[in-house]
Amino acid sequence: MSLFWFVVGQLASTETMSTSKKVITREEWEKKLNDVKIRKEDMNKLVMNFLVTEGYVEAAEKFRMESGTEPDIDLATITDRMAVKKAVQSGNVEDAIEKVNDLNPEILDTNPQLFFHLQQQRLIELIRNGKVEEALEFAQEELAPRGEENQSFLEELERTVALLAFEDVSNCPVGDLLDISQRLKTASEVNAAILTSQSHEKDPKLPSLLKMLIWAQNQLDEKAAYPRINDLSTAALEDPSI
């Protein structure tokens, strides 16, 4: 009997807790937010960080002049980095490799996986262009030795060479390698490696801040009803639904 009452008692208290969520009105909320001070320079730095990381070099240059915010990286290197990225995205892998090496020869010399993926992409482009003989020679000369050095490279190489075995590559089990997304994947890998070599974060800070905002709102939802931001692009406060 006593146990029964105890359980009921607990249920009751949980219920009161969930219904007694604190309600914060828009007025109160805006007042609270007004009390939080954000420095303009910090905002500018975040914007600069976004422009730099994403590679908007001209915008960054303009922004630097207009706002006086100094980028934490030599803007010229952004142009170089974007050129590399673009070269991979458009299938000029050899050109991309040369550009990376001009930028910093250590990147590909100390990052075998990235180097292999670039070479693999080169092979994919040869196959895409129907240069079968050249592709085979390239695979044998340049990629096979890497496969000997590393088992997982060998597996990837085998998968890539398998492209040659199919008449209709668009419909074969390894067809995804020819997909444009494969180029983008390789391009983003190079981009990240270059950024890391420049001691720069490979992701911009703004998305992390927004992620944190969503997380914090989810946490708060359990405790209170408040004006929420649902649309990140407008950042509009929406009245709490009670």
């Binding site: 090496n101 590909l108 180097f115 030795p145 890497r146 050095e149």
Partner: peptide, 13 residues
């Protein structure tokens, strides 16, 4: 020089 450099970077063989 540049060609050789580009050939040897990342390539042990």
């Amino acid at each position: 020089l540049r060609e050789i450099k580009n050939q040897i970077i990342g390539n042990r063989t």
